[in-house]
C-alpha cells in the first residue's frame, strides 16, 4: 500500500479533473445544455419503439438506466456503495403489487405507492449510513435479502402471496408504463444535474472527501447523506414499480435478484460515477452488449462480465467519463490552438 500522502495527491488530481472548478456558477447556456440532456435522451428513447418495436426490451433498458443513475446519486456523490440496492427495487415492485391486489388501484397510483414503500424502507435503513465502506455495502445487501426472505415467506402468503407469485395482468398497460419510465429517466438525470451544479451537491462531495472537515464547515453530514439515500431509494422504488407493472406475473426472486444491483452498479461504474451522462451511456452500451452476448454466446457471459469488472477497476476506475474528459481536454487544447490561429 503506498503512503497516504501519495494516495492523497492521486485523489486530488483525479477529483480536480472530475469536477473542474465546482464553485463556478454555470451560465444560462450551460443550464440550457443540461436541460437538453435531461429531455433529449428520454424523448429519443421514448420515440424509439416507433422504429424498433420490442418495447419491453427498451423498457428494461430505461429501468436499468434509472437504476444506474440511482447508484450514481448515492455512490457517486456520497461514496456509499449499495450492494443491496435491489432491495428498494423489490420493495417498490411489491408495494406496487400489494396496491393492485389489496387496494385495487390502477397502475399509476400503484407505482406511486410502491415508491412510498421503498422510501419507507430507506427510512428504516437510515441507521445503515452510520456504517462505512465494506460494512455498509454488505449490510445493505443483508438488508435487501432479509426483506426478500420476509416477503417470500409462506406464512405471509395471505398478504404478499409468499413464494407463489403475483399477477398484475388486470392493470397491464405497457405503453403508459413506458412513458412513465422515460419520464423517470428524465427525473433521475435531472437529480444528477442538480447534484452536479447545486450547493447541496457540492456539500455532498465535501462530505465524501472529508466528513469531519465538512461538518466543521457547517454541513449537516447525516442530513446530506440521508437525503441522497432517500432520493436513490425513490428512484429505485419507482423503477421497481414500473418494472413490476409490465412484468405483470412474477415471483419474489424475480424482483430481488442480486443481479439487478450488480448490473446497476456495473453500468454506473462503466460510464463513470459522479458524471451526468456516464451512467446513461455506460448502461446503453453494456446493456446492448449483454443482449448481444446473451443471444450469441451466453456460456461466456458471466466470465466476460467478471473480467470486464476486473479490467475496469484496474485500468479505468473513472469509467467512460474519465476517457471522455481526457479526450475532451486533449481536443480542446489542440482545437483551441487551431481556433486561435485561424
Amino acid at each position: 500500500m503506498p503512503s497516504p500522502a501519495v494516495a492523497g495527491t492521486g485523489a486530488a488530481t483525479t477529483a480536480g479533473a472530475a469536477t473542474p472548478a465546482p464553485g463556478t456558477r454555470p451560465g444560462a447556456r450551460r443550464w440550457a445544455a443540461w436541460a437538453a440532456y435531461v429531455v433529449v435522451i428520454p424523448v429519443l428513447l421514448y420515440l424509439t419503439p416507433h422504429v424498433y418495436n420490442n418495447q419491453l426490451l427498451l423498457l428494461n433498458l430505461v429501468v436499468y438506466l434509472v437504476l444506474a443513475q440511482g447508484v450514481n446519486v448515492i455512490y457517486g456523490f456520497t461514496g456509499y456503495l449499495p450492494f443491496g440496492y435491489v432491495g428498494f427495487f423489490g420493495a417498490g415492485a411489491y408495494g406496487t403489487s400489494m396496491a393492485v391486489i389489496h387496494l385495487h388501484t390502477g397502475g399509476t397510483v400503484a407505482v406511486l405507492i410502491g415508491a412510498v414503500v421503498s422510501t419507507a424502507m430507506a427510512v428504516v435503513l437510515l441507521p445503515l449510513l452510520r456504517l462505512t465502506g465494506a460494512y455498509f455495502a454488505l449490510a445493505s445487501l443483508a438488508a435487501s435479502q432479509a426483506v426478500y426472505l420476509v416477503i417470500a415467506n409462506p406464512s405471509l402468503t395471505s398478504f404478499t402471496k409468499g413464494p407463489y407469485g403475483v399477477d398484475l395482468s388486470r392493470v397491464f398497460n405497457p405503453n403508459l408504463a413506458y412513458l412513465y419510465a422515460a419520464i423517470l429517466l428524465a427525473v433521475a438525470t435531472a437529480v444528477v444535474v442538480y447534484l452536479r451544479n447545486s450547493a447541496f451537491g457540492l456539500s455532498l462531495r465535501a462530505v465524501r472527501a472529508d466528513p469531519l472537515t465538512a461538518s466543521v464547515a457547517g454541513i449537516n453530514v447525516a442530513r446530506a447523506r440521508g437525503i441522497a439515500w432517500l432520493a436513490s431509494a425513490v428512484l429505485a422504488g419507482l423503477a421497481g414499480g414500473i418494472s413490476a407493472w409490465v412484468t405483470s406475473v412474477f415471483y419474489p426472486e424475480t424482483v430481488f435478484a442480486i443481479n439487478i444491483s450488480v448490473f446497476a452498479i456495473v453500468f454506473a461504474l462503466f460510464g463513470g460515477v459522479g458524471s451526468v451522462l456516464g451512467p446513461v451511456f455506460g448502461g446503453i452500451i453494456l446493456y446492448s452488449l449483454y443482449e448481444y452476448i446473451g443471444v450469441s454466446s451466453p456460456q461466456y457471459f458471466q466470465f466476460a462480465y467478471g473480467l470486464l469488472i476486473v479490467i475496469l477497476m484496474l485500468f479505468l476506475p473513472g469509467g467512460l467519463a474519465s476517457v471522455a474528459r481526457a479526450a475532451r481536454s486533449l481536443w480542446e487544447r489542440t482545437g483551441g490552438r487551431v481556433h486561435r490561429r485561424a
Binding site: 419491453l56 426490451l57 409490465v246 412484468t247 412474477f250 457471459f301
Partner: peptide
C-alpha cells in the same frame, strides 16, 4: 433465445 435463467431477460426475449 437464451435467457440465462434470468426472468427479466426472459421477458425481453419473449417479447
Amino acid at each position: 433465445y437464451n435467457d440465462q435463467s434470468d426472468p427479466t431477460t426472459a421477458a425481453t426475449l419473449y417479447n
